[in-house]
């Protein structure tokens, strides 16, 4: 089984007529994802390589029955696009957009929670979600993932998500689902959401969790793991050698004092029984051991 998506998930692409939306949307379709439509205001009635384009999410949902949306629009328009998707009846929103102002994210997240409580947002600023062989929404290259499980992957960093998939696939270890939750300050879906879903998924037998410096999501996840998680978890936290006080790339990666450092996160996870590794390769090798012993 997979979490959040499966082979029947119907997906629309908001921003399909843009260069990013087109490239990745069609790539997702080629992978086998049911990409049933695109949305670009003013371009309704046209198509992108045979995929019909609609003026609004509402129209697209009515015509196609889509339940998921892939948002690939510039930061200025991303918050409105997320809310339009929720308003239009979409249950799962995947937003890859990088560079959304933090205040916009905070308002959008809280509006989703208050006005559309059943809607799940993955991202923003994330690689998306892939359930190998079934559904790929986002920018992950499908050929680095391997179908069949038994490992679930959750990652806060984009390129490290690919690295994690690559390490597993090279060893012949498949993935049930891989969720890139993104490194922005206000992610729609967090580690705990994904860990809970993997814990509940009978086909997922172990989880790989990739974190990075900044914030306290890993520490919170560690607390949750201690109480709720029975499946083995292998973790890698990026940024052990990052200099303190410097902002490395995005807002998620700020170190302030001791809290939020890679070491603090590694200690918290180790104390919760997680296998903490020092680099992605080591994490892959540890997972081989665990899967062999299953």
């Amino acid at each position: 089984m997979s979490i959040f998506v499966d082979e029947n998930t119907k997906v629309i692409v908001q921003g399909l007529t843009g260069s990013q939306g087109r490239f990745h949307g069609l790539r997702n379709r080629d992978y086998g994802t049911k990409i049933v439509g695109g949305v670009t205001p003013g371009k309704g009635g046209s198509d992108v390589d045979g995929v019909p384009v609609f003026n609004s999410v509402k129209e697209a949902v009515e015509a196609t029955g889509a339940t998921a949306s892939f948002i690939a629009v510039p930061p200025k328009f991303a918050s409105a696009a997320i809310l339009e998707a929720a308003e239009g009846g979409i249950a799962l929103i995947v937003c890859i957009t990088e560079g959304i102002p933090a205040h916009d994210e905070a308002v959008t997240f809280n509006r989703l929670v208050e006005e559309y409580p059943g809607v799940r947002l993955i991202g923003p600023n994330c690689p998306g979600i892939i359930s190998p062989g079934k559904c790929n929404i986002g920018i992950t290259s499908g050929d680095i993932a391997l179908a069949g499980g038994p490992v679930g992957v959750v990652s806060r960093s984009g390129t490290l998500t690919y690295q994690a998939l690559h390490e597993l696939s090279q060893h012949g270890i498949g993935q049930t689902t891989c969720v890139g939750i993104g490194g922005d300050p206000v992610p729609g879906t967090n580690f705990i959401d994904c860990l809970a879903a993997f814990q509940a998924d009978p086909e997922t037998k172990a989880v790989m969790m990739i974190g990075e410096i900044g914030g306290s999501e890993e520490e919170r996840a560690a607390e949750w793991i201690k109480i709720n998680m029975t499946k083995p978890i292998v973790s890698y936290i990026a940024g052990v050698t990052a200099p303190p006080g410097r902002k490395m790339g995005h807002a998620g990666a700020i170190i302030s004092g001791s809290k939020g450092t890679a070491q603090a996160k590694m200690d918290a996870l180790a104390a919760a029984g997680v296998f903490v590794c020092l680099n992605p390769t080591e994490a892959g090798e540890k997972m081989v051991e665990i899967v062999k012993a299953l």
Binding site: R156, G158, T159, G183, A238, G239, L278
Partner: peptide, 9 residues
């Protein structure tokens, strides 16, 4: 950013 940090590590 994640891969860059990991590369440093």
């Amino acid at each position: 950013a994640g891969l860059a940090m990991s590369t440093l590590d």
